[in-house]
Design a protein around this nucleic acid. Structure first.
Length: 407
RNA sequence: GGGAGGGUUCCAGAGCGGCCAAAUGGGCCAGACUGUAAAUCUGGUGGCUUACGCCUUCGCAGGUUCGAAUCCUGCUCCUCCCA
């Protein structure tokens, strides 16, 4: 097996990485691997806790792919047991525990998605239940005797919870230990993850030392921010772009990120040379954002689809053209009087507003429009003459056509 | 087992027995602005009603009172402290 010179490998690995600990050992490992022709074992663990992976997850995953391209061995851990605990990292409350079957289902869809980024044919995939499931209680005792409570409590997430008097459950304390033990089991040389994983990564080294194994190195990516550009991209915050989403949906979301966040997105989600990125960012922010969206969308869909999505965005949002797919909502003709209906009732019946109170508010705020030419509805008791195919919209996002014919 | 403090509208978090559908902040929605955004500013954010108004909500169940989110009793759940 031929490997690139160490410096070249380091350059690729170093991109978009916040911390490598301990950094000096990485070069040594690479050196060693190159000399002996042995690929390094790169670990990345995912807990199948939900269904959708989002771009935040892809940051370490992309790093993994780069390692693969450099000729190293990808080792994916499906944390089916850790998922049952719930990672306390960066959380201020206990995660709901998942059942074994739910986890198993998630694991399947996860792998499909992971396969979009990582070359699964060349990767080892393990479930940590394979070893944790076999542990006896005394094995667990041995493992738990490696860490002190004080060590655990130094972690931010735990100490914050202590301060705010919220609960820390015993099983949560095992999480970092379990994650660390995975590294022992698979003899990891390098582990990928976000910066919040530092504690577990270091713990893994201690366990490996105990087992007389080579110590792993942590390669930690920065935390990708979400659509708000501030908080981390995460499912619970609802600010994420899922990798299974349609090209157009992705494009819309990309266009929503704050300008300032673009640089980070470029760095972490694309392979474009950073010099080129700077050039793009020096241009018009809107163009830069479209280019960003296209580049990323291409990875999960096709180039044509990415182009289409961009064109459609330009048309529908940029120029305010009508969307391609306007839902048609039935309005029972019996609701009409002389072909007319009260504005509030109309919005409510079409499901554009959840209650007539909301409809009233929307109208008062000037958020309701009729027809192609976007005539505003002025008052809540206005009588609207409804014709088949009438376009009704509320705000920017809700729109439909009325069907009064009953078919 | 003992003690203390809590459970309020999406979240956090105020709340004097009447002026509480309930402060404030966040989130979210809308409007203005704009290159999409962000930021900013403005408004909105239980339900029903054309309107006056009405109805349901403050862990649960009762009670005191003309009147309770606010007082009392029981239950329940949560957190902390001592053992």
């Amino acid at each position: 097996m031929e490997f690139l010179p160490v410096e070249e490998q380091m350059a690729i690995i170093g991109r978009g990485v916040e911390k490598i600990v301990p950094e000096e050992e990485l070069a040594k490992k690479l050196e060693e691997s190159r000399k002996t022709g042995t690929p390094l074992r790169i670990k990345y663990g995912i807990d199948p806790t939900g269904i959708d992976l989002h771009l935040g997850h892809t940051v370490p995953m992309r790093k993994m792919r780069q390692f693969q391209e450099l000729g190293h061995q990808a080792v994916i851990i499906i944390g089916n047991y850790t998922a049952m605990v719930g990672d306390p990292s960066g959380r201020d409350e206990t995660r709901a525990r998942l059942t074994e079957t739910a986890v198993e289902q998630n694991a399947k869809t996860y792998l499909e998605q992971v396969g979009k980024v990582i070359d699964l044919d060349k990767a080892e995939v393990h479930r940590n239940g394979d070893w944790f499931g076999k542990m006896s209680f005394s094995d667990i005792l041995t493992l738990t005797s490696k860490v002190t409570i004080a060590q655990l409590l130094t972690r931010d997430d735990f100490s914050n919870r202590m301060k705010s008097e919220s609960a820390i459950y015993l099983h949560e304390c095992l999480y970092p230990l379990m994650q660390a033990w995975d590294s022992v089991e698979i003899k990891a040389d390098i582990e990928l993850g976000g910066t919040e994983q530092l504690f577990s990564f270091m713990l893994a080294r201690e366990l490996q030392r105990d087992e007389k194994l080579p110590l792993q190195i942590g390669v930690m990516s920065p935390i990708l921010v979400g659509l708000d550009g501030v908080r981390r991209m995460g499912k619970s915050l609802g600010n994420y772009i899922g990798i299974a989403e349609s090209p157009y949906d992705m494009m819309k979301m990309f266009m929503q990120i704050p300008d300032d966040a673009m640089k980070m997105f470029y760095e972490l989600l694309t392979d474009l040379p950073l010099g080129e990125v700077d050039q793009i960012l020096a241009g018009h922010p809107k163009d830069a954002k479209i280019a960003l969206g296209k580049t990323v969308i291409e990875e999960y869909h096709t180039g044509e689809e990415a182009d289409e999505a961009a064109a459609r965005w330009e048309k529908e949002i940029g120029q305010g053209a009508l969307p391609e797919d306007i839902p048609i909502k039935l309005l029972p003709p019996s609701e009409l009087e002389d072909g007319k209906i009260m504005a509030v009732k109309l919005l409510n019946l079409l499901g554009l507003c959840n209650s007539s109170g909301e409809a009233r508010r929307m109208i008062a705020q000037g958020a309701t429009y009729l027809g192609e030419e976007k005539t505003r509805i002025e008052t809540h008791d206005e009588l609207i003459a409804v014709e088949d195919g009438l376009l009704v919209r509320v705000g920017k996002k809700k729109i439909c056509r009325v069907d009064v014919t009953g078919n």
